[in-house]
Amino acid sequence: MTQFLDISGLCARIDADGQEKEILKGVDLSIPPGEVHAIMGPNGSGKSTLSYVLAGREDYEVTAGSVTFQGQDLLGMEPEERAAAGLFLAFQSPIELPGVNNANFLRTAVNAVRRARGQDELDAVAFLKTARAAAKDLSMAPDMLKRNVNVGFSGGEKKRNEVLQMTLLEPSFAILDETDSGLDVDALRIVAEGVNRLRSPSFSALVITHHQRLLDYLVPDRIHVMAQGRIIHSGGPELAQQIDREGYTRFLAEAAAA
C-alpha cells in the first residue's frame, strides 16, 4: 500500500456483442506519489482496458477488486469526479469534437476541475496566456488553440494536444496510453519533455507503451509487464532494454509455470 494509487485484485469485463469477455483478471499494482511507472506487454493484454477502467469508462464492468486513489474509492466515482480528484488519461486515439473550439474546450475543462477543486476560475485572458505559453513549450502551432478539438489534427498534433490538456489540468496522476504511438523521434522527445516538466513529488504517472524508445526520454521508476489481464513481472528501468532484446516470451513462460 502506497496511500497514493493502489490497485488490488482488479477484474473487469466488457460486453462485446452480447458476449461477456473477461479482460482484467486480477491486476495488482501500486504507484507511490512522485513516481513514474511504465506498463509494457503484448497486444491484447489489457493495458488500455486498465486505463479506461481507472478513468471510469462505463462500457467496462468491474467484477472484483478495488482501486484506492489518495484515500478515495476510485471505482465509486464518476469520470468527471476522478478528473477533479486529479486523474488524467491521455487517450491513445484522441476524440474529435467537430465545431468545438479547442481553446474554449480547454478553458471549460480547466474551469470545471478548478471549480471542483475549490480553486478560482480563470478568466479568458488569464487562461489564454497560460494556454499559449504551454502550447509554445510543446512546439504547437499557435492556431491549434483556434481549431476544433482534434479535428483535422495529424497524429502528432493530437498527441501534443493531449499533453497540452494534461499540463493545463494539473493532474496528480496521469495515465498515458501509448502516447508515443505514431510519433516521429522529434515529436516523441517533445512529448516526453512535456511529461518530464510535470514530474514532481506530487505527480505520478502510468505510461503504457510498446517501445523502449519513449522510456529513454521518460525514464520510469518501475516497469511492469502485463499479459493476459495481469501484471506478471515488475522491475526497474533496465527491464525496458531486456524486453527490447528478448521480447515477452520468457516472462510469459515464467508466468505460465508459476
Partner: peptide, 8 residues
C-alpha cells in the same frame, strides 16, 4: 467520455 475525463 472524453469530455467527462477532462472534468466536464
Amino acid at each position: 467520455f472524453y469530455c467527462r475525463q477532462r472534468g466536464l
